[in-house]
Design a protein around this nucleic acid. Sequence first.
RNA 1: GGGUGUUUAGCUCAGUUGGUUAGAGCGCUUGCCUCACAUGCAAGAGGUCACAGGUUCAAGUCCUGUAACGCCCACCA
Length: 892
Amino acid sequence: MKELEKQYDPKTVEPYWYDRWQQKGYFHGDASKGGTPYCIVIPPPNITGILHIGHALNNTIQDILVRWQRMEGKNTVWLPGTDHAGIATQNVVERALRKEGKTRHDIGREAFVGKVWDWKEEYGGTIIRQLKRLGASCDWERERFTMDAGLSEAVEEVFCQLYDKGLIYRANYITNWCPRCHTALSDEESEHQDVAGKLYFIRYPVKRDGKLTASEFVVVATTRPETLLGDVAVAVNLKDDRYKALIGKTLSLPVLHRDLPVIADDFVDPAFGTGAVKVTPAHDPNDFEMGQRHKLAPINVMNPDGTMNEGAGPYAGLDRFECRKRIVTDLTAAGLIEKIEAHQHAVGHCYRCDTVVEPRLSLQWFVKMKPLAEPALQAMLDGRVRFVPERWNKVYADWMGNIRDWCISRQIWWGHRIPVYYCDACHHQWAARGKPGHCPQCGDANLRQDEDVLDTWFSSWLWPFSTFGWPHKNPDLALYYPGHTLVTASEIIFFWVARMVMAGIEFMGEVPFREVYIHGTVRDDKGRKMSKSLGNSIDPLTIIEEFSADALRYSLMMITATGQDVYLSNEKFEIGRNFGTKIWNAARYMQMQDPAGPVRAAAGFDAALLSADDRHILAKLSQTIEACTENLKRFRFNDAAQDLYAFIWHEFCDWYVEYSKDVLYGQDAARRAEVIKVMHYAFSTALRLLHPFMPHLTEELWHGMGYGSEEETIMLAPWPKPLTGELAQWGATPEVVQYVDARHELIRMGRMLRADCGIAPGQKLDYSIKPNTPQLTVWLKADTTTLMSMLKAKSVSVDAAFVPAAAMPSALTPIGALYMPIEGLIDVKAESVKLTKQLEELGGHLERANMKLNNPSFINKAKPEVVAQFEKSRQELQEKFNKVKRLLDMMG
RNA sequence: GGGUGUUUAGCUCAGUUGGUUAGAGCGCUUGCCUCACAUGCAAGAGGUCACAGGUUCAAGUCCUGUAACGCCCACCA
């Protein structure tokens, strides 16, 4: 126990406690200790990354869950680590290399990969250090990297299993190609962006009897004129009368003068463009399929870097966009451009470098996804894994249901090299774990390994079990798999979450986590995504510097409604800072009153000495425990944060501390001791609830106040339980709560009157409250009309008989008396619900009765007495109905 | 094109199974450096709950439609 400084100093306090927690090993989970596991794996940030505000949000949420569950006594692991981020990291190192005037090809594969490792050693830990500054209670002893030995082993194992099962294949196919990164991309890595492009209408001359006709053309529309160099046909719809006669005829490809057949294909939509489509199998996925259907060999006219190759004839060597310009110029000169229209369409962009993606034919590796997706979809439908908020279930299901094969090969050097080997002697090809010495078929030792590396996500999708030592069986894997919760943003549901579910089921036989909490995206105050290029990003470390890590964490939680996007600006962080200051000062107040208070508080209360206010704050505390816990269970972090804020600031500080001053500065020693006990009880409990949100401040106060011994930590203090039994024991009944709440209302009204009537704050007024009909008598210098209207606005009843003038101090004018009915308050909601049920029942009867009476067959068949009797009872019912309705109206 | 989210105070947002007077923070107005806290205290003003219908005794909340903005997915060249 030490005296609290006047000013809280997070800059020294926060790192102090974080280091201590780490030294003491509080973050580490030990499988041999057994118990109920609670495991979260971190979405591994890229080694190229620096902590941005989205990470801060994501990791604060995870830390809150983990710290809460740790206090609940679970065997907790939050497994941290980083992702090697293939393309992104390679780009960074290549850029550095370029500054030296070199390319990766100049230094060779091995040296380049060595350089990336060097870079990783030097800079790859940045984000980890930043997570520590945030207060993340990760199990750092378990830190993993997607390229470390264990994970690489898992990657090879998975590749071989899928390969041997026939789920991995190699094929020539149109893939998304990034000409800047020189690699294929998966569909997910190609981001569609709307682009204001142009639709070029180009004339293809028709040949008759092998000769060009001067005036006959087929006009095709395209957004990428340069690809016409790779055309092998023009397609029309069989049902399109305009072109029927041309099917089977020959056209001449502009510029290159190649002969192109006119073919018929259902794919062509007669309503779009001109109804005639150029067929370019090497540069368009649809055309590729058409080419296959019609057995037309593709012509590739582009190099991997996006320049035109020798197939482009005179345009060889030009960049694709330069070529586009030139070809349009040339076509225009030749009179072959019919028109050019503006055309808005979606174009794929590389998710790493934002270059326009080129659909391009190349030899790539793929994973067959359907067999993996079906059980993963089923797991969600069964509820074995569920998304919060629920709406993401549908997004997940849609993707799983329409899944396409996953292109997993990348033409880069940084990553897990594809473990496929080729024997040139016998042309055998196989996948192997570890580096094989010779060909298993012919024994030849002259082997080649595939040059490509795997998609980064091919290691990420194994993260929940590869990090625990899979494929080797071990106690960690047995206890901590499957994990409990996954916390992430919606952007990587397809990249990562969905694929982890598939891998978990395929290789572990069970989903990797039970629930997936999808939080919102952090945006700036104009609704834009935070990004470096926009210059609108808020650097969490700057915020930590200016406010504190706890302030950052708490503020983020206050404004993050479940799954909603967060709009952020700098001043939002004042919430957390001010809250921290408030708490600090409340603690100082208590310490000043009685430094030994916490010790005495441990003794428990003497119920007979508790006042209504004491009981009230204890009841509110219990409500807060319950609400806060429930809200954490439901991922309602903003509500939980709000609960704590309202309790600590408004109940505890605004009311209870103020109330306590009367007692603590007073003479009644027994009451004084009791109030101090209550105060410490409430405060220390609130600190525990707040710990997951503001870990450093709460630990500092836990020790500063002396709630735990030097060797203890609030991190492992038990999570508070609602005080159901205790409240009854202490006499903290709902009536007491209602009474005190009502009195607060009265006091507020008194203050209002003071303020409105201009009574100086220093001037004492005489408020008297009588039991049962607590009456506030106010003497004020104001007229009755004013008071009446004020009271009316607050809908408080005013006794018609004012206090007799004789009873007033002569210097003041009596103006009114205020009544607050405490006994006999009607629970309008409960009563209404009761009546509503009655009404529904009556309504049902009534409707049936009406139906019967309106039914001709009933009237005809029934005896008149029966009808009369029926009519009578229907009227009675109606009356009853109206009565209930009137009652309801009165209450409403 | 399909899906999905948002629209509530000047601003940023809560508002759970429909139910008492629609809340919070910031900002604003007024008065206070009152012995924990001016990063504070007390009081106040400020709302046609996007719009139009509907269901209900009762709608910010449920249903139908409309509009604006946003996000995701998508091989009409």
